[in-house]
């Protein structure tokens, strides 16, 4: 099997309590995917944008990636990266999947397993 160069990143901490998402966003690469799970699903909520933006300010990523055609997460624009949020974790925390930004896709555990298999490796940020 040839080594796949794309990576699945999982993030399981709230952006208010941890650098997990911010650090993940600094090393994420076009073609990668990010799965928000457990308290990581709070990263998907729009209201966290202002705090996340100030935290990520000056990061290489926000400078290097054009802001025109990307996904926005916690105020950071990224391009070429798919973002998923685990449905059970959204549900448990009272976050209505229908209210998520359109480019954050709710997924099941079955999808999680598929994502792991489709990517060359997974990196867990906690």
């Amino acid at each position: 099997m040839s080594r796949s160069f794309s990576t699945l990143h999982t993030v399981n901490k709230s952006p208010f309590s941890s650098e997990a998402l911010a650090s993940c966003l600094r090393v994420v690469w076009p073609g990668d995917a990010i799965l928000l799970m457990e308290d990581g699903v709070y990263c998907a909520v729009d209201a966290s944008a202002s705090v996340g933006a100030s935290r990520a300010e000056g990061s290489r990523l926000s400078r290097a990636r054009p802001a025109s055609t990307g996904v926005e997460i916690t105020g950071v624009q990224i391009t070429g990266v798919r973002i998923y949020a685990l449905r059970e974790d959204l549900q448990a925390r009272g976050i209505d999947a229908a209210t998520l930004p359109s480019d954050i896709e709710p997924v099941s555990y079955t999808d999680f397993v598929k994502l792991v298999c489709e990517h060359g490796r997974s990196v867990s940020w906690f």
Binding site: N12, M37, E38, D39, E88, Y109, T110, F112, V113, K114, V116, C117, F126
Partner: peptide, 24 residues
């Protein structure tokens, strides 16, 4: 890497079960 008191341990369990169900 997480104690059962943390949700991450349950996530690992749920992932394992789902992977087995999917035939992995």
């Amino acid at each position: 890497n997480a104690a059962p008191s943390s949700q991450a341990a349950w996530s690992a369990y749920q992932f394992t079960r789902t992977a087995l169900d999917a035939g992995h």
